[in-house]
Structures are given as structure tokens and as C-alpha cells.
């Protein structure tokens, strides 16, 4: 075997300016977080709206939300990404198209595509969790809310959603983690996030194992931190006496 193990590789110069390989990882991680957080905020908002729609009476709104979920759940993420990056921009109005393709630097246009893609993809999943959470509540809750004179909107805002969101924190956490992992597809349209930087390091330095080990460790630590954060949130919002909360 002629593999040269070198765990100091991360502190060595990349040969480009004064950068060391670690700088690449730091910048990659920065992009990963920027993509995931932005997409998550949109996914959470859109997914909540869709989730509520699925539980509303009537036919049209639930059907729209259902169609949305089925569409975004049954097309591979990568196909969706290519759509947002290669196809959709060509159908934008002329000025927007020029802005997206020529004025923006490539990293920004890739960033926008991947954020839109992940946000809409994840919204379908969030929608299902929100719907499940609302449907898990006792039926008496919405009846009681309407009985005290709340409108449908108030019923959701003050009674159903505050309870539903508390129930679904664990599955939402795993969607939150997924969006970080899924953001790695951005590497396939040239955004230099964590995976792309790892690959580049592996190819530049030939220290494949070190590069991927560090990437793994970063994802692992990221995962653990997010899980800890979410369980803190869960504890913080827990209602005494409800669903295993402190009495």
C-alpha cells in the first residue's frame, strides 16, 4: 500500500493563496448552514400552512395541499434540484432571467436554486407532520375552541397549533436534521458547501480518508448539536402535566 496518512493535512497550504485546507472546510460548513437554515425557515412556514390546509373542512384546500405533498414527495430531490437550477430559470420573465443568469454570481444563483428546492421539498414533509399533529389532538379541542366563540383562524392559532407543534417536535427535529444532510446535493450544481469542499480536498491532497473522516465528524457533531438544541427547545416549551411533561 502506498497511501500516505497525514492527519496534519488540514493545516497545510492548499497551494491557492494562503489558504489551508481547514479554511475550505470552514467555508463549506458555512454554506451548508446557510442553505439549510434558510430553506428550513421557508419549509416550516410553507409546511405549516399546507398542513393546516389539509385539516380544513371543505374539499378544495385540502386537495391542493394533498396534491402538493404527493408531487414533492414522489419526485427525487435531485430531479427537483435540476428543475430549479436548469429548467425553471428559462421560463422566468426576461429581466429576472437575465438577473439570475448573468448578474448574479454563480454561487448565488446556485444558492437560490438549492434553497428553493430544499424548502419546497421539505415543506411537503413538514406539512404531513403538522397534519398528523393536529389530527392527534382530541376532537373536543376544536369543538371547545369554537364553542367559546373563536373563529377557525383563532382556533388554529390559539388552540390547535400550539399543541400540535409541541407534539411533533421529535419528527420535526429529524426533518431539520435531514435538511442539513440533503443540502449536500448542492455540491452537484457547483455550490461549494461541505461535501463539495471535502471532495475537492480529497482530490487536491490525495488524502481521501482524512478528508472524508473530517467531513463525517463535522456532520456528526452538527447532528448532535442540533439534536441537543431541539431537545432543549422541547423541554423549554413543554407544558406541565401534558404528554409526559412535569406535573
Amino acid at each position: 500500500m502506498n497511501y500516505n496518512w497525514d492527519w496534519n493535512i488540514f493545516f497545510k497550504s492548499t497551494g491557492i493563496g494562503s489558504e489551508i485546507y481547514l479554511d475550505w472546510f470552514v467555508s463549506g460548513l458555512g454554506w451548508t448552514i446557510a442553505v439549510a437554515l434558510m430553506a428550513w425557515i421557508i419549509a416550516l412556514l410553507l409546511g405549516s400552512v399546507l398542513g393546516v390546509m389539509r385539516t380544513l373542512p371543505g374539499k378544495v384546500l385540502p386537495a391542493i395541499a394533498t396534491a402538493y405533498v404527493e408531487l414533492f414527495r414522489n419526485v427525487p430531490l435531485l430531479v427537483q434540484l435540476f428543475m430549479w437550477y436548469f429548467v425553471v430559470p428559462d421560463y422566468l420573465p426576461e429581466p429576472l432571467q437575465i438577473w439570475f443568469k448573468q448578474d448574479l454570481n454563480p454561487a448565488t444563483s446556485a444558492y437560490i436554486s438549492v434553497v428553493v428546492c430544499l424548502a419546497l421539498f421539505t415543506a411537503a414533509r413538514v406539512c404531513e407532520q403538522v397534519r398528523t399533529g393536529i389530527q392527534a389532538l382530541p376532537r373536543g379541542q376544536s369543538a371547545a375552541a369554537l364553542a367559546v366563540g373563536f373563529s377557525i383562524g383563532q382556533t388554529y392559532r390559539h388552540v390547535l397549533l400550539p399543541q400540535a407543534f409541541r407534539i411533533i417536535i421529535p419528527p420535526l427535529t429529524s426533518e431539520f436534521l435531514n435538511i442539513f444532510k440533503n443540502s449536500s446535493v448542492a455540491s452537484l450544481i457547483g455550490l461549494m458547501e461541505l461535501l463539495a469542499q471535502t471532495k475537492q480536498t480529497a482530490e487536491f491532497s490525495a488524502n481521501i480518508f482524512e478528508a472524508f473522516t473530517l467531513a463525517t465528524v463535522i456532520y456528526f457533531v452538527l447532528n448532535m448539536s442540533l439534536m441537543t438544541l431541539m431537545s432543549l427547545v422541547e423541554k423549554k416549551v413543554r407544558i406541565p402535566g401534558m404528554m409526559g411533561g412535569a406535573k
Binding site: 444532510k181 446535493v185 472524508f212 456528526f220
Partner: peptide
Amino acid sequence: RSIPLLLVITWFYLA
């Protein structure tokens, strides 16, 4: 479960 599938695919391809 804490790493992306794409990372595993890329890594294994090289490793």
C-alpha cells in the same frame, strides 16, 4: 443516520 447518503456514495467511490 447522521451523514448524507451523497457523502457515503462519493466516499465509497473513492475509497
